[in-house]
Design a protein around this nucleic acid. Structure first.
Lengths: 237, 237
DNA sequence: GATTATAATTTGTATATACATGTTTTGCAA
DNA sequence: TTGCAAAACATGTATATACAAATTATAATC
């Protein structure tokens, strides 16, 4: 099946990004959109709810779907955006240094990933260089029973691309934490810290669509180069 | 109107929090829930989508709604949680020091809030003390045309409570940014920095349901006491 | 012309049906 | 007992209708 409402969502996102609808303006009414896309109003509403959820529009009862100004948050470290997408969006030169790609057994991480204590995990350690400076250190632990093979080429190119497109694993959600911590010896070795004594640490547990815990990631950023941008909707009730 | 699906959402959240459904288990099927709540399946689905969106469940096709383990992220600085909710959840003693409550005209902030350049803004500066240490400095700019009156009591007690419950303004969404910056003289004066030379800065633009930009907030945290926890769903397409 | 009442427009909620798609269970057959 | 096919079950998508509630446009009245 094609999932009409997803198609309509993408069409409308493109239209907004092309400037067809400016911020402050309203989209065509649900009724008009449904005749324009030859579909029912409920299907249009599903597409509009996606737009609303992702911060493209605000629906105002009796008025319409008002287009929001997304200019102020064009840096989505948010969501589950990967390093590759990120640096491409920045338009800066980037490199990835693979420092480790090994199989390990770490009972503590296994327990948090809900896999057997003796299970093998891939440990991937990569330094990210942007604009000539190594500013991010990524430490990944991935269940080997779900990803049997990993090569240096894969982790250097795009791990997520391999996992989602080659292995066709359905990455669905993540729990993440952002804190600030003192630098470790590892940070000193692999990063250009420029005198900084603390790093911003993003720890994530990544889950597949079937709720399988899949990966634990620790992303360590030099504080002056760190930015997290988010769109948050208030849950009513 | 009562909004059945909101009611059902809250009922199910309470049930999950009471441990009626354990993580890993599935909720009753949509069909069973609809007969249990005497409503249609679509209404149940709206409630379940809210649960899914807020990280309580993961819907798995053909299987059911699997309850997720929320233990690992019980510290939602996320969303738009206010300081009061936050410290109460922490269960620690807290105090608010009001250092400033004045009307100012700041063209730059006015422009970003889309209000006339000459408009008056409330500037509220508060230091937050938790466990005997002043670790958060909140600087708020609020449009006076939307909030005509503010007193020291209000900003000391709960600003959001006043705005939402007394003025009945409908706070709907926010754009926020998290960065790390050097401490300012102001930070030195109002916070117990304990030798830290950087603070975590959360800048937020807060909007009402009718898309009116309403408030700009800068929340400055001592890095060792800062934590941001989030549940992020991957947008498909 | 200004104010007010009415109608039209637009989004929100609730319900119903049909069929698609993925999972689990059941039952039959080898 | 094992293996496979079919049925039962669960969620996903698409469509339709009716009414509620908020806003905007229109018309009527003073």
């Amino acid at each position: 099946m094609k999932k009409k409402y997803i198609e309509i969502y993408h069409t409308l996102v493109e239209d907004i990004q092309k400037g067809e609808y400016l911020s402050g303006e309203t989209l065509p009414s649900e009724h008009e959109l449904s005749s324009r896309f030859h579909t029912s109003r409920e299907t249009i509403r599903k597409a509009l709810n996606l737009l609303s959820h992702n911060g493209y529009i605000q629906k105002v009862r009796g008025k319409g779907s008002v287009v929001l100004d997304r200019d102020k948050f064009e840096f989505p470290v948010s969501g589950l955006t990967s390093f590759k997408e990120l640096s491409e969006r920045l338009g800066q030169s980037f490199r990835t240094h693979v420092h480790e790609l090994t199989l390990v057994k770490e009972a503590k991480i296994c327990r948090q990933l809900n896999c057997p204590a003796g299970a093998s995990l891939w440990r991937v350690i990569r330094a990210r260089e942007i604009g000539g400076e190594r500013i991010i250190l990524d430490k990944d632990y991935i269940r080997q029973d779900l990803v049997p093979e990993l090569t240096k080429e894969i982790v250097q190119h795009s791990l997520y691309n391999y996992i989602e497109n080659e292995l066709e694993l359905d990455i669905s959600f993540a729990k993440k934490e952002i804190v600030v911590e003192p630098v470790t010896e590892e940070d000193e070795v692999f990063l250009d810290l420029k005198g900084h004594h603390q790093v911003v640490v993003i720890r994530s547990y990544v889950y597949l669509a079937d709720t399988t815990a899949f990966q634990f990631t620790e992303s360590r950023h030099r504080p002056d180069k760190f930015q997290f941008v988010d769109f948050a909707r208030r849950t009513k009730g």
